[in-house]
Design a protein around this nucleic acid. Structure first.
Length: 715
DNA sequence: GAGTTTGAAACT
DNA sequence: CAGTTTCAAACTC
């Protein structure tokens, strides 16, 4: 039996947000079959999954079905329960279906879906740019790496066969794993998989890397959590030779044939030697997203089932920037990145071999969690300040391939800290596997990106930073026109000025928002990677005090955004709730019945409030007008200079003739006339006179040229 | 920019 | 849970 990548305890504690942001599709069995384990998702425990549905089993093969049209942006991932994918009877954890909304960029068409049992495999795959998930000894590796139009390679190792993940590519042990190579038009090819050097990624260096990670959480009661991660990787040109040169351990990654035409239908079969039972129907939670992202086009979606049911569709907008894909999770202001590091299969007795030893180089892997609106800006790499390089064994880096943004997600566990995961702020390493396995969950805020400079080690993912507008600050900055700031240009968080709290208390806005301090003016700041331990302790303390500490204060009301209100209400006494001291006012929302404020004027009919709002509106308009005027003026000046100023920057510099102004011309003429008079007065012959005049003219020209050169030098 | 005011967070 | 203190942002001058 393979070790759980994520312990059941930890898994059960994982917050919904994590799943949401990961675009994890959960499949649960609504009607547990006799002899078959009921599939229950973690989300089903206490969180309704709106998109759950029953899915009939269509085939006995795990299949990925893409859209029928090559130009179609919507693709469907279909998994049906069969002997290979269903749970064996009596198995406490039954994962039968994998439904994963993920984006498949038309340009890359790379999908990596891994289910691997061993830690080495996990690490290896992770290093190789894949995500590994194991299920009870079963290994499922679906990997699609290649150029556009290349097939998706899926590998499904046998349950009984443990991958020798630590082995070098060349010494891969023969395995009876079978995988199905999916090609365009549904053309598939089933091949035996024997890990080896031949199974390597060979096209990584020339392609963009994107990944969508989809995992499934198992119910708390499940003894063996099952997680699926579907990763779509698109090689990025930015990927260095490191990536290219990194062999996939145990040969779990197959070389793509770049000559294939764009895939349309993807079918993945997963033969198993286990006596798994097929499940007639599945309850599939396609998307934990409570609300689909707005304004999404083009859209790529993955759904479970052979039918491209819209109800299963998770709409994932594809941003113009291939590497920027974000997930908008309403109600969540953080974006989460799950880090699943390798675990040691204790039950199997498989020796724990440091996977890193066999990994020649770190391989950046981008996990696209889907496009989202952003309210937390991703700071360009140039602004990266704090760097906390971590050993390869203790840190993972999430990176975007193009913007060079990286997230370090420290996987170093902090056993003594077991906070309420639901309320953990970003950047928190959630837990360590009970068995000592190195399992880390990291909730990483977008701003985390700014913490990292070096692209260390295992780069996992992601441009998926996002933040919904539910945070107090985001809402507070919502423009008066009602348009969310998340729709506009991202605005950097205000730097804090903490002096005594070490930025480890909720006094600090950065900390309170689950962000690291970045470009702040704080003193003795501990809210950074260098003080990971202290920060985690502080988080725990805050959560002990208030489990909701890191949740947005402004929750959506019953009727949606128009009815937002403060979760606790304010307690203002002297501000009349019409100053930014008031959290309600700051969030641009009315005080509600739960507020305990005194002398509140922040209600709908309040004349003071209306006046204030009008003033603010006017001020806003004024600022906008001024800004526009400045912009216009600047543009005009620039244009004027461009048109009136002669070419200066050309290779030869400003041309001398540009200095022949009217005055210069007159002076030159005067000089020439003076020379003519002089020649006349001295009774010079006409030829000599002409010579003198021409000579003077030459002198004038020289002077002009000299002046031009001097002027140029001065510039 | 220094000082004051304010209310949430932290503490008792 | 209430009262007090601490804290950093908001605000004023």
């Amino acid at each position: 039996a393979a070790m759980d990548v994520v312990s059941p305890e930890l898994n059960s504690l994982l917050p919904d947000e994590i799943m949401d942001t990961e675009a994890i599709e959960d499949i649960s069995h609504p009607h547990p079959q006799p002899g078959g384990a009921a599939v229950q998702t973690e989300l089903s425990e206490d969180t309704p999954v709106p998109m759950e549905t029953d899915m009939p089993v269509i085939s006995e093969s795990f299949s990925l079905c893409s859209g029928s049209s090559s130009t179609e942006h919507t693709r469907i991932l279909t998994t049906s329960a069969d002997s290979t994918c269903s749970i064996s009877p009596g198995s406490p954890h039954g994962l039968q279906k994998l439904t994963a909304p993920f984006t498949i960029s038309p340009a890359n068409h790379q999908i990596i879906l891994n289910k691997v049992a061993s830690s080495q495999a996990t690490e290896a795959a992770r290093t190789a740019g894949t995500q590994v998930i194991k299920q009870d000894g079963q290994k499922l590796l679906v990997t699609a790496i290649g150029k556009s139009g290349q097939p998706i390679v899926l590998q499904l190792p046998h349950t009984g066969n443990k991958p020798s993940l630590s082995q070098a590519p060349g010494e891969a042990k023969p395995q009876t794993t079978q995988f199905k190579v999916l090609t365009i038009g549904g053309r598939s090819e089933l091949k035996p998989m024997t890990g080896g050097a031949g199974n390597q990624l060979t096209t990584l260096q020339t392609q963009q890397l994107k990944a969508v990670q989809i995992s499934k959480k198992t119910p708390t009661s499940s003894a063996a959590p099952i997680k699926f991660i579907i990763t779509k990787t698109v090689n990025s040109k930015g990927l260095s030779s490191q990536t290219a040169g990194s062999p996939v351990l145990a040969g779990r990654v197959l070389t793509q044939n770049s000559q294939l035409i764009p895939p349309r239908t993807i079918a993945l079969s997963e033969p198993h030697n286990t006596s798994l039972q097929s499940i007639p129907s599945k309850k599939i939670a396609i998307s934990p997203l409570k609300t689909p992202s707005k304004s999404i086009k083009p859209v790529q979606s993955v759904s479970v089932g052979g039918v491209a049911g819209s109800q299963f569709k998770t709409i994932i907008p594809i941003p113009s920037q291939p590497n920027v894909q974000q997930i908008h999770v309403p109600g969540n202001r953080f974006h989460y990145v799950r880090l699943v590091t390798a675990t040691t299969a204790s039950s199997t007795g498989q020796p724990s071999v440091p996977s890193t030893s066999t990994i020649p180089t770190a391989k950046p892997m981008v996990v696209n969690t889907g496009a989202v609106r952003m309210s937390v800006p991703i700071v360009p790499a140039q602004t990266i300040k704090q760097v906390a390089p971590k050993p390869l064994t203790s840190a993972a880096v999430v990176a975007t391939t193009q913007t060079q943004q990286r997230l370090i997600m420290p996987a170093t566990p902090l056993p003594q800290i077991q906070p309420n995961f639901t309320n953990l702020p970003p950047g928190t390493v959630l837990a360590q596997a009970p068995g000592g396995a190195n399992v880390g969950y990291a909730i990483v805020p977008a701003q985390y990106v700014t913490q990292i400079q070096q692209p260390p080690f295992v780069t996992l993912a992601s441009s998926s930073s996002f933040s919904t507008s539910t945070s107090v600050q985001s809402q507070a900055r919502m423009p008066l026109n009602g348009m969310s700031t998340t729709e506009t240009a991202p605005r950097p968080r205000k730097p804090c000025n903490c002096t005594k709290s070490q930025c480890l208390k909720l006094y600090c806005d950065c900390f309170a928002n689950g962000e690291f301090c970045n470009n702040c003016n704080c003193n003795n700041c501990f809210n950074n990677l260098e003080h990971e331990t202290e920060r985690l302790k502080a988080i725990k303390t805050c959560l002990d005090r208030n489990p909701e500490a890191f949740k947005p204060k402004i929750g959506k009301g019953k009727e949606g955004e128009s009815d937002r209100r403060h979760s606790k209400g304010c307690n203002c006494k002297r501000s009349g709730c019409l100053k930014n001291y008031c959290e309600c006012y700051e969030a641009k929302i009315m005080c509600s019945s739960i507020c305990k404020c005194i002398g509140c004027k922040n209600f709908e009919e309040s004349p003071e409030r209306k006046t204030l709002m009008h003033l603010a509106d006017a001020a806003e308009v004024r600022v906008q007008q001024q800004t526009a005027a400045k912009t216009k003026l600047s543009s005009q000046i620039s244009d004027l200079l461009t048109r009136t100023t002669p070419v200066i920057t050309s290779g030869a510099g400003r041309l001398p003739y540009t200095f022949v102004t009217k005055e210069v011309l007159e002076a030159t003429c005067d000089c020439l006339l003076e020379q003519a008079k002089k020649a006349e007065q001295t009774h010079q012959p006409s030829a000599e006179a002409e010579r003198l005049i021409l000579e003077e003219f030459g002198h004038c020209l020289m002077r002009i040229i000299s002046a031009a050169g001097k002027a140029k030098a001065d510039c």
